[in-house]
Structures are given as C-alpha cells and as structure tokens.
Design a protein around this nucleic acid. Sequence first.
RNA 1: GGCCCCAUCGUCUAGUGGCCCAGGACACGGCCCUCUCAAGGCUGAAACAGGGGUUCAAAUCCCCUUGGGGCUACCA
Length: 501
Amino acid sequence: MTSSTTPVRVRYAPSPTGIPHIGNIRTALFCWVLARQTGGQFIVRIEDTDRARYDNSAEKAIFESLDWLGLDYDEGPIKGGPHAPYTQSERQQKYVEAALSLVESGHAYFDDTTPEQLDALRERQRAAKQPPRYDGRGRHRSPGEIEESRKAGLPITVRLKVAEFGSVSFQDTVRGKVTFDLKEIDDFVILKSDQMPTYHLAHVLDDHAMGITHVIRGDEWISSTPRHLMIHQAFGIEPPIYVHVPLILGKDRSKLSKRHGATSALEYRDRGFMQDAVFNFISLLGWSPGDDTEIMNRDEIVKRFSIDRINDSPAIFDSEKLEWMNGVYIRNTSKEHLVEAVLPFLERPESEGGLPDSVVRPIDRAYLERVIPLVHERLKLLTEASETLDFFFVDSVNPKAEELPGRNMDAEMTSSALASALELCKTVTPFEPQHLESEYRALAEKMEMKPGQLFSPVRVATTGKVFAPPLFETMAAIGQDRCIERLENAVEILRSGATAP
RNA sequence: GGCCCCAUCGUCUAGUGGCCCAGGACACGGCCCUCUCAAGGCUGAAACAGGGGUUCAAAUCCCCUUGGGGCUACCA
C-alpha cells in the first residue's frame, strides 16, 4: 500500500510514434497528480528506440499535450535534470554496455537467427498448433559461429536467457497478485541488431537509474511485466512498484487508436474544449473520488487522488459527457477568461470556423466583452462562439423568408408585426433592454398578439437566426441603426418573397 | 490457439457481506420556468452477464460458463 505522504518518483515515458491519445495522456495525468500530491517528482522520458517508427511531429505533440494540460515536469528533455539525458536514443551506450555485461555474466547471449528464420519458425509452430515462441536455438551457438555470422553481415541480437521452469509473480497495486508461468516466456530480445535496446531493457535500466518508485502504465504492459522482472533479476536490482491502469477503449471497445476519430488531447483543444474540463474529465476515466463529486479543479483532484481508487475495468471514451462538462467549465469561468479563451477561435479564418472573413481582425475586444455575457451560459464548445456571435459582428444579416414567421403566424401577420416593430425601433429611446422590452410588450398588446409572436420575427430579422440570446439585450448590443436596417431588410425580404408565386 | 486481465443502467461510475427490490452523472423522455435557444428545478425509463456454491444474509467472497479486452515482434 502506498502512503500518500511518501514522495514518489514517477515518469511518463511515451514513444514518439504518434500523437498521444487520451488514454496515454491520462496515464501522464495520473503520474503528475501523484507526484504533486506526494511532493515527489514527475519525470518525462522519450522512448525513441524504434528508429523506424520515430516521428518528430509526434514528439512535439507530446510536449504540446503536456503543456496544454498543465502537466509540468520536474525532469526531462529540454529541461534536463540529475539523470540527463532523458531521451533514450542519447543513452544508447548505457544499454549496449548493460546488455554486454549480461552476456558476460551468462544471463544473456548473442543470437544470429535471421528475421526470415524467425518467421519460418513461427509459421511452423502455427501450423503445428503450437504457440509461436522463440526456441532458444541461439543458446547453443558458439562464439566462433557468432563471429562468423557477424563477419557475414548477419544481424546479431542479444537475448535474455529465461528459465524454462518455475513462475514469476508480482504484486500490482491495482490488480493484486499476478502470476505467470515461465514456460510461457521465451528468450526475448533485449538488444536489437541495430544496437538499440528494446523497450524491455531500456525502460528497466532507466527507471532504475532514475530512481523511479512507481511504474504507472497502461494495462497492455501487464503481460510483459514478467520479462521486466527477469531483467531486474539478471542485473540483481529491485523492481519498482507496478501500477497497471485500465485501458481506455474506443466506442467499439478496442484499444484507442487513430481510427476512433478524435482521440488526442490536442484535437480536443482544437475543437474548443477547455483544458481544465479535459483535465477533470480524463481524471475521472478509471478513477473516482468515491462520492458523487464530478466537477473538481486540479487542486481538488490532487488532494483527493488515490492509487487505491483506480478502477480495475477499462473505460470507453465517450466525448458526450465531456461536452457537457466543458459547458459547465465555460459557465463557471469568468467573463474575462472566456473572452481570452474564445478570441483565438473567433479570429480563425472563416473556413476554419472563425467569424466571417468580412469581420476585421483583430476583433474588437471591447465589443466582444460586451456581448459575451449574452452567450456565456449557452456555449458548450469554444468553437461554437463564431456561429453564436457572428450577427453581432457582421454588418448585415440574411434571414430566410420562411423562418421569419413565428409559431402559428401567417405571412400577413408576420409582415404587419415586422412593419410595426420597425416603426417602433426607429423611435424608441433609450435603446436599452428594459425599455425596449416594455415598449415591445406594449406593442404586442396593442396589436393583440402574444409577445412571442411579435418577438420571433424580430429575432430572426435582427439576428438571422431562429435561436438567439434574449432579444432585447441582443438588440441593444447590435445597436439601433443596425436594428433598423435589419428590420427594413426583413420587411423587404418578406415582401419580395410574398409576391413570388 | 496459448497466456494474462476485466465484467453494475447505452456511457462514466458509487457500492469492499446486511444501510441496495442498487445511488449519482451524461445522454434520452415528460413537466415546470420562459420572448426562442440555453441554463435551472422536478420527474420518468434504464444495470448487478449466466449458473453453481459459501453464508442467517451476496452486486459484494469462491468455482464454472459466457462475453469483452490485452499480449503473443529485432513496436512500444
């Protein structure tokens, strides 16, 4: 059991082969939270030992994701630290030396089996309905034979000698005791023929060197943990505490990947989610504080987090609830902060979801501050701001003729409503919400219409939309001149539409 | 196929033997509020995968079955 007062050293060790998805980032978040809670360290290490799959943009995305969610690290690439470097490709020599020392001590051996031979072996095993497994043939190769292969340019790997009998078990903090039979584990590669270590070797060495106390990682690693234990044993070092967190699955219940659509934290940022909402939401995937609390800021999460309360079962990632939560965060945020958050989205080009290109950039900030309260509680995504606010910023608006009439209103009723509304609009002073409302209500009464029947066409005429913020606040913000123009325009639209056959 | 892990409403989850004919949240339906849309309030429908044990008592413990997932690479 982990005492929350003992400082932990935990690490997030992604490999830069793709943009980190929510599940991956959730693991980073758990690590970060635990480090902050215990006053320990959160370390980032880049595991780029797979040269073929290395992707520079993925590496950038990793740091961008961490940064966006505010997961600051104590040691890592760029920043450095007492165990630098924190990028595995820069630590290669250490792995090679370690692998060689294992050969020296008899815990590992060179293997010159070619990939083709390995394929053939597996093929045969499959045909014979045997589990595909390396058969340990390299154990019997003499140094001379290896040397010959080396000279012939054959690929040479280093494999760990795994005992053929017995079992390994370990205590996983979330799973409990997990046991594997050693006969299930073959002699696996620890040093590849390109002199790069495999994940198994590299991370064990680094975690040990960096003093990692808790290895927090996805459930997918549970079945290779016995290998990691064997490596520790071979080096005579103590393994860390293992914490295998349940995976986050896509809607089809399979491991999260690109084909599940938007799965990276960065995509959520770009789609208008707030970082605190995403932080809150993903912390609740596979963990809960134990009561009904759902909305928690990061301090609360840090305070309440506990490894013991991490779930056993995988969670399906469904962004519907995240959208709701994002709305909660938007509503809870200050006007000033919302303006700040929404501005970059409004200023994007129209084709990317920004305000119409006809609106001059930079956007009139003072005016935005004036109108944002009108939509504050209506916003679920920051990206929605453009279409929710556009009519405030553009010069004119184009209501559809068929949308102008309100419920149970015919064309005639609509035109007379608009005509009277226009006349009133020209004369009403001051042009302020309360006054506007009382004037327009009086007008509705005089015309023997329900307020809504008068307001609806006016809303559509002034905003171009059927749904909009409260009418009189909106009109006041749009201003008397533009309202008059828009109402005139609507009257015109209706007239030309009505005369058409 | 083999090994390992998992199993409560559609989804996220509470539940650690009696407080549970199972609670909360999202989504969905209804009602209220209301100038539309939201927000808010009330409310409805919705789950312990199945079968055996153990126990006075089981969603909770054990076993089996079923289902799902992961791993099974010179990828991580």
